[in-house]
Design a protein around this nucleic acid. Structure first.
Lengths: 209, 209
DNA sequence: TTTCGATGTGAACGCCGTCCACAATGCCAC
DNA sequence: GTGGCATTGTGGACGGCGTTCACATCGAAA
């Protein structure tokens, strides 16, 4: 889709094409690989054309980041759907919180480039609840986490006075571990070892929230 | 120290000068601001001269990162020295673990640029125990954390079977929170609010380790 | 004193993000 | 229809970057 010149002068949906190209670049290479000129090249368009749809490279990267966060949300929703449904509401809610963390960390392992693009872009977490970051189900990763914490309170598994700010505790733990797996001492470990670390970390959150 | 030409053809200690310039760049601007050409400019030297001392920009950045981690270590040691010494060994050890986390997060707030350069450089965490990352006291941030966890076990405040991998749990939590404070929803909050989140997070680690 | 490795210089290459002026296009009012 | 106009794409240029190659300069060892 890049070699032959377009039939029409107009492209059709250049914004979407640039975003798709940006996603491809991010997939193998992370945020630094999202290069404006290369994205236009892949879309079969001159470099400047990008500026009709994105203010600058940072804007394109932000769009890529938002889209990638949507994929993370999907991965989390998948894990939620697959989670078993124990009868007791409390253990069910706690199980669902684990599923959310598992989905987040699973995505980090399976799609390191996109994960980096999603969460290692300075400032792009500031409006974590923006609908631009939502997945198919319409919820952003933060919203999913937030909702599961509400379930925890509703099920009586988390004291209401501990609820406020719970997102920050849970997210901190899980995101920190993702960093260790991607760039730190846990890099390159076998899936089993990483799964072990994950379970221990989720235990910590479960116990300490 | 940049304008007037050098008296001698040789620079003296160009490596150190480039590293110092790199640290200055990182201090305000983070890792992306560590630009090879600018560092040589500040050292009063042609761009290529840098290649006699660093293989490429990544090598310079890695040196900056290591040095910055040494500063983080210093900040942690300071907090450790300032920590009160309760009589009970167990509560003392737990107090010291808190101090380590407090120092880490304090540095992140006080020196965001250097903190980013220290910990937001892909791959530079892989050998976390390298002496290049040590502070004045000769310990890297990871070593400090590791030692405090050992103290916890020695004091009987942590079951020995929970000890292995404890670094990953504690570090994950604290580093994740630092990310939220620097780039996420907690950015720009008052110091009191951030301190509140910090204490809650350290509670979680304390309880859940 | 000569030689030689280590260190710094100059010029160049290709890549990047971005800006400006201009061309092609689709659409809407008349 | 047709003329005008906002939208979208092009071409060319600028400065900055990392990096390489050939060359100059120096200090120290032979």
């Amino acid at each position: 889709m890049s070699a032959e010149p377009r039939a029409t002068y107009r492209h059709g949906d250049l914004r979407a094409a640039l975003l798709a190209a940006g996603m491809d670049l991010a997939r193998d290479g992370g945020p630094d690989a999202v290069v404006l000129r290369e994205a236009t090249r892949r879309a079969g368009v001159s470099p400047n054309a990008a500026y009709r749809h994105f203010a600058d490279r940072a804007a394109l990267l932000a769009a890529v980041s938002d889209t990638a966060q949507g994929l993370v949300a999907d991965r989390m929703e998948d894990e939620l759907s697959a989670a078993p449904d124990p009868p007791d509401a409390g253990t069910r809610a706690r199980r669902r919180l684990r599923a959310v963390g598992t989905g987040y960390l699973g995505f980090a392992q399976e799609q390191p480039g996109l994960f980096r693009a999603a969460f290692f872009v300075p400032g792009d977490l500031s409006q974590a609840f923006s609908p631009a970051k939502a997945g198919r189900a319409g919820r952003s990763p933060y919203q999913i986490l937030s909702d599961v914490l509400d379930e925890l309170v509703a099920a009586g598994a988390l004291a209401p006075e501990r609820r406020p700010g719970g997102e920050f505790l849970a997210w901190s733990a899980v995101h920190g571990l993702a960093t260790l797996v991607l760039d730190g001492p846990l890099r390159g470990l076998t899936d089993e070892l990483i799964a072990g670390a994950r379970e221990r970390l989720l235990d910590m959150v479960d116990r300490g929230l």
